[in-house]
């Protein structure tokens, strides 16, 4: 079973291909489908190989994709309040 998976905000994608190219296990490919701006967003072609490493999320210049390990929440911004 896959250790991780991704979430994609299709409408934000500009089809640069960074996530596809630099995914270490080649999980992604640009899909033939279009978003409303006419770009081809990525989809998972080898979902079982996803480790949830979030390299796709680090690369995506449009904040359209991120990866996470199944059963683990990605580290998030903590609200810091001065006492």
């Amino acid at each position: 079973m896959a250790k991780g998976t991704v979430k994609i905000v299709v409408e934000r994608c500009k089809a640069c291909g960074f996530c596809v190219e630099f995914c270490p296990t080649k999980v992604l490919a640009l899909s033939p489908a279009f978003n409303s701006k006419g770009y081809h967003p990525p989809h998972m072609v080898n979902p079982e190989k996803c480790s949830g490493c979030d390299l796709c999320g680090m690369y995506c210049p449009d904040f359209a994709i991120f990866g996470y390990k199944v059963g683990e929440k990605p580290a998030q911004k903590e609200a810091v309040h001065e006492s």
Binding site: K7, G57, F66, V70, G71, P74, A75
Partner: peptide, 13 residues
């Protein structure tokens, strides 16, 4: 195992 993880968001968001 929660594959969907509704509360998982992009860390940049």
């Amino acid at each position: 195992v929660d594959f969907e993880c509704a509360e998982c968001t992009n860390p940049v968001e």
